[in-house]
């Protein structure tokens, strides 16, 4: 297991390094510079600015400097926002996104699991059909449409909830729901198929043959075995939450990392784009690692074998 984790950590570092390099050179290829909005500056002033961002050096020197800074956790300075360090910007905004993402993940998976379990137990009944309907809708309709509709009907028309910003619990409700719908649908449908499969397996018959009551069979033997694979969809869910926060934060004007990313893309704030990209990549790779390790820990079959497949 330890060897496996080390190997995975190695991959993680390589991946992150490649992404850092890739995004660095992509940025160099792009037109535009931090000076674009500052055309009125004199040449001497421009030089000072370029010097400040280290943009006067040849590209290889910039690259080495960039990687060196990166290793020390320094992501550079924002091109657009008055000398703010990218690290600070990210650190200010990550907690908000994390909070939103966590709410959505918890609510989404919990509701989804319950739906999926109910659908599996009452297979081919109206419970199953309605759960299926809900999950098809949840998977099909893009989160930004949900967000828009919620904002318009619940926020504007009915005036029940605040339509923007972040801080009070009322403000958290609509973005959380909009963001939770996709993970909910995924969890529901995954849980349903997993549970149906588990309930059809031989050891469930063994459990029944012992004379256990149906509740014990379903929950002690069925649920645990069906829950273990749910961990594997956590990776895709993390991705969906990332794409989700990008639009949801924009729609509800939530000062999180997603909203920041969209703004920086719009304003060619390259250092922030690169910083955020790296953060997303790190987050993603980290989640995948956690998922794999977690899977190994909770599934006794993998625990000793030391790795999947």
């Amino acid at each position: 297991m330890a060897k496996y984790i080390l190997q995975r950590l190695g991959y993680m570092v390589v991946t992150l390094y490649l992404i850092a390099t890739f995004s660095f050179f992509l940025m160099k290829m792009l037109p535009g510079s931090p000076l674009r909005a500052k055309e009125k500056l004199s040449e001497a002033q421009q030089l000072i600015v370029l010097e400040k961002y280290g943009l006067n050096d040849p590209v290889p020197v910039q690259y080495i400097k960039y990687i060196g800074d990166l290793l020390q956790g320094d992501l550079g300075i924002s091109f657009q926002m008055k000398n703010q360090a990218v690290t600070d910007i990210l650190l200010n905004r990550i907690p908000i996104s994390a909070q939103l993402g966590l709410y959505a993940l918890l609510i989404g998976t919990t509701v989804g699991m319950l739906l999926g379990i109910a659908a599996a137990i009452k297979n081919n009944s109206w419970v199953d059909y309605s759960a299926n309907f809900v999950s098809v809708i949840g998977i099909s309709i893009p989160s930004f449409i949900f967000a828009g509709l919620l904002q318009y009907y619940v926020g504007v028309e009915l005036g029940l909830l605040p339509i923007a910003f972040w801080g009070t619990w009322q403000q958290a409700i609509m973005p959380t729901i909009a963001l939770a719908i996709f993970p909910m649908a995924i969890a529901a449908r995954f849980m349903r198929t997993e549970m149906i499969e588990v309930l059809g397996s031989d050891f469930i018959v063994t459990a029944r043959a012992k004379g256990l009551n149906e509740t014990a069979v379903l929950f002690k033997h069925g649920l645990r075995n069906a829950l273990i694979p749910l961990v594997t969809v956590m990776g895709p869910m993390a991705v969906s939450l990332m794409t989700g926060t990008l639009v949801i934060e924009q729609i509800f004007s939530i000062p999180g990392i997603g909203e920041q990313f969209v703004t920086s893309v719009m304003t060619d704030d390259f250092s922030v784009i690169m910083g955020t990209t790296l953060f997303f990549a790190f987050f993603f790779v980290f989640i995948i690692l956690i998922v794999d390790v977690l899977y190994g820990i909770i599934d006794p079959r993998i625990r000793l074998a030391g790795g999947k497949d």
């Binding site: 995004s23 991705v239 990008l246 995948i288």
Partner: peptide, 16 residues
């Protein structure tokens, strides 16, 4: 390695 990179990041960088 390619799968380790989030799609979102690649797509956005490519589009840029």
């Amino acid at each position: 390695i390619l799968i380790g990179i989030p799609n979102l990041v690649v797509v956005i960088l490519m589009i840029m």
